[in-house]
Nucleic acid binder design. Structure first.
Length: 211
DNA sequence: GTATGGATTGTC
DNA sequence: ACAATCCATACT
């Protein structure tokens, strides 16, 4: 697989959010390694996006990573219990990122089952297999991604995204999930997923949300 | 120091 | 429909 270069992450956030679909996230730890296919993403663009932590280019200790160079991980704690993984996009100094909302296990699924349910893969139901990584908090738990990974370079040899084999799929575009507070930004069509993929987070768009 | 609420998830 | 859970942020 061909590892994406940092220049891939430097461009337009929404373009990158779409292009990340179908690509492979690789995470190699000393004791285990994971490969997952990215199937659902959302774009967040600080300068103009009320849903973004860095709205109006607000710099705080937490949002600092979003302003940094592209191709790094922005990991934050949400609701006091889950972590969310983003990939920082756009040029150094511009606050933007792509939230990874859903991935499909390719390699390391046995360990993902342990991480998520403290059970061996063979001891979970077929239905639970699809609940391993179909949400931003779930996939971080499955891959063991924590706030320790905040700021981590995603153009390295043990943490990177790669171009997979060519695959035909349809991209669905919708509003983003759980940003009701974001006023005009609630309607921005900045969520993208692979149509029909079983690891897209289960919230299906309501009437009128499809673009 | 105190208050508020969230880019979620699982259970009721 | 709602609780869990705790940190980041914005106040005093």
């Amino acid at each position: 697989m061909v590892e994406l270069k940092r220049s891939f992450y430097e461009g337009d956030t929404l373009k990158i959010a779409k292009e990340l679909l179908g690509k492979y996230l690789v995470l190699k730890n000393p004791t285990e390694s994971y490969i997952v296919k990215i199937v659902e993403t959302e774009g967040y663009i600080g300068a103009i996006d009320k849903a973004a932590h860095s709205y109006l280019n607000k710099r705080t200790p937490r949002t600092e990573v979003m302003f940094g160079p592209p191709g790094h991980a922005y990991v934050y704690l949400i609701y006091g219990m889950y972590c969310c993984l983003n990939i920082v996009t756009q040029k150094n100094g511009e606050a933007a990122a792509v939230l990874i909302r859903g991935v499909e296990p390719i390699e390391g699924i046995e360990m993902m089952s342990i991480n998520r349910f403290s059970k061996k893969l063979e001891d979970i139901s077929k239905k639970d297999i699809y609940r391993l990584t179909n949400g931003p908090g779930k996939l971080c738990m499955a891959l063991g991604i924590t706030r320790e990974d905040n700021g981590r370079d995603i153009c390295s040899n043990n943490f990177y995204i790669a171009e997979g084999k060519y695959e035909e799929f349809e991209i669905v575009t919708t509003k983003r999930i759980n940003i009701d507070y974001a006023e005009e930004a609630v309607d921005f069509p900045w969520r993208f997923y692979i149509k029909g993929n079983a690891f897209v987070s289960k919230k299906t768009p309501k009437r009128g949300e499809l673009i």
